[in-house]
Computed example of a mutant assay.
Amino acid sequence: MTAAVAVNDPHGAWLADGVHAVRIGADLVLLDLNLDDYLCLPECGDVEIAGRRAVGSTEALLRLAAENLLHPQDEAQDRPGPPSTPTRRLPPASAIRPGWRDLLTFGAIWCDAVRRRPTLLELHRRYTGRRGRRDDPQALAARVEVFRQLLPLAPWTGACLLQAELLLRFLNAADLDADWVFGVRTFPFLAHCWLQNGDHCVSEAPETLRVYRPILVI
C-alpha cells in the first residue's frame, strides 16, 4: 500500500533504493542491487526512466509498485543516470614495458580480487566515492597498455566483472580513474560491464558495446 502512495504523484515516482532501470524498446530492464539480480518487464507501457525518476501512467507505475520496485515515500534522493555508451578509443599508447612495481601491484590486486565473490551491491559500496585523475587520456592509455601486457600472466582472469575490477584498481593505484559502467541488452538478455572515461572506452573497443544500454555506473 505504501508503494502505491508514490504513484499518486502525476509526474511519476521514485525507484526503490538500490534499483536501477533502463528502457530498451518497449521493455524495461531493472537491476536490483539488493537482490543482486536483473529483471525484465516486457511491454512496460509508457514508463520512462531519468536517473531515479520513473515517469508514466498510473497503471504502468502500479506494475512497478507491485514488484516492490518503487520507493515507499513520495520523494527520494535522485541520482544521475549512467553515461552514454562510449564511441571512441583511447589515444594510441607509446611503447612501454611493465616494471617490477607494475608486476607487484598487479599481483597484489589480483590476489585480493579473486579471493572474494562480491555482490554488485558490495562492489557499489566499495568503489563509490573514489578519486583519481580523468583529464589525461594519454596517461590512461599508457596505464591500460601496461595492464594488457600483465593480464595474460594471471592464472585466471574470469569474465568482464573481474577484469573490469582489476583494471579499475590498477588505474586507481596510479591515481587515475574511470567510470565503471554496467550495460544490458535484450533478445537474448545479456549483461556486460566496462570502463569508460567520457566518450572514450577504456577497457575494450567501443564497437563491442553498441548492443548494450548502460543501466548502472559506479
Rank of each mutant, 00 (worst) to 15 (best):
A164T: 15
P92H: 00
G107R: 13
F106Q: 07
L162I: 06
D177K: 00
L151R: 15
Y127R: 14
F147M: 12
W156K: 09
G158S: 11
A108R: 15
L190R: 15
L166G: 09
L90Y: 01
N172S: 11
P118D: 03
A76C: 04
R101A: 14
F187H: 13
G183R: 08
R97T: 10
R79H: 07
Y127Q: 09
A76R: 08
D78W: 06
C160D: 09
D135Y: 03
A142I: 07
V114S: 02
D136M: 02
V144Y: 02
P188A: 11
C111Y: 12
R117K: 11
A65E: 04
D136Q: 10
H192S: 12
R148S: 12
I96M: 11
P83Q: 10
A191H: 12
A93P: 02
T157A: 15
P118V: 00
A65Y: 04
P83Y: 12
F187P: 01
R117V: 03
A95P: 00
R115C: 00
L140T: 07
V146T: 11
T119P: 04
D102N: 11
L123N: 07
P98Y: 00
D136W: 06
L123V: 12
D175H: 12
V184R: 05
A154P: 14
D74M: 14
G158H: 13
H71G: 00
R185G: 11
L171W: 09
G81I: 02
T87E: 13
F182I: 13
D74Q: 12
V181W: 10
A142T: 13
G183V: 05
T119N: 02
